[in-house]
Amino acid sequence: MPSLFGDVISAFMNVPRESDPKASDAEVVVSGVPFDLACSGRAGTRMGPNAIRQATANLIWEGKRWPWDFALEERLNVCDAGNLDYAYGEPESLVDNLEGHAERWLAAGKKMLTLGGDHYISLPLLRAHAREHGPLALIHFDAHTDTYEQGTRFDHGTIFHHALKEGLVVPEHSLQIGIRTSYDRQNHPYEVLDADWVNDHGPKAVLERIRARVGHHPAYISLDIDGLDPAFAPGTGTPVCGGMSTDLMLKVLRGMVGMELVGMDVVEVNPAYDHGDITSLAAATLGLEFLYVLAAGKRVWRVVDPRQ
Rank of each mutant, 00 (worst) to 15 (best):
V8R: 06
S245A: 05
L136N: 03
E99V: 15
R209Y: 05
Y220D: 09
E149R: 10
A108H: 00
E99F: 01
E191H: 15
A233Y: 07
H201N: 14
K298I: 05
M13D: 04
L248C: 11
E191M: 15
Q54W: 00
V170W: 00
F141W: 08
G109H: 11
D196P: 00
E149D: 09
V262E: 02
G41W: 06
H119C: 14
P218C: 09
P21K: 06
R209Q: 15
L175G: 09
S31N: 08
S24I: 11
Y86H: 05
H144M: 07
M259F: 05
V257S: 06
A57I: 05
F70P: 03
K64G: 10
A23S: 13
G41Y: 11
L228F: 04
L175E: 08
P67S: 09
E191S: 13
D224V: 03
H101Y: 13
A23K: 14
G178A: 10
P203R: 08
V29Y: 05
L193P: 00
V29H: 04
Q186I: 03
S19P: 01
I210M: 10
L286D: 00
L136I: 04
E191G: 12
G263H: 02
A137R: 01
A283D: 01
L261R: 04
M244C: 08
D69R: 11
A195K: 10
G227V: 04
V300Q: 12
F160E: 03
Q54S: 12
A128V: 05
D155S: 15
C241I: 13
A130M: 00
E90Q: 13
A282L: 06
M259D: 07
S40M: 11
T114L: 13
R307H: 13
E92G: 13
D274S: 09
S174N: 11
D146Q: 10
T152V: 14
A143I: 05
Y273W: 13
A283P: 09
C39F: 03
R104H: 08
D85Q: 14
V15G: 03
A219M: 07
Y220L: 13
Y220S: 11
P203A: 15
V214M: 03
P171F: 02
D274A: 07
K251E: 15
I9E: 12
A231D: 10
F232Q: 04
T279E: 11
L115F: 09
D96V: 14
H140A: 08
H101L: 10
G157P: 07
V300D: 07
V28N: 00
D200N: 14
G258Y: 09
A87M: 14
W105H: 02
S122I: 03
A282R: 01
G297S: 15
Y292L: 04
A71G: 07
A137F: 00
K251S: 15
D229G: 10
G116I: 01
N50C: 09
A38E: 05
E208P: 00
F154Q: 04
A43T: 13
H275T: 13
R213A: 10
D194K: 12
V33D: 08
S19A: 14
R75E: 10
A296G: 01
G100L: 06
V29M: 13
G243D: 06
Y190I: 08
W197H: 06
S174K: 07
R254K: 13
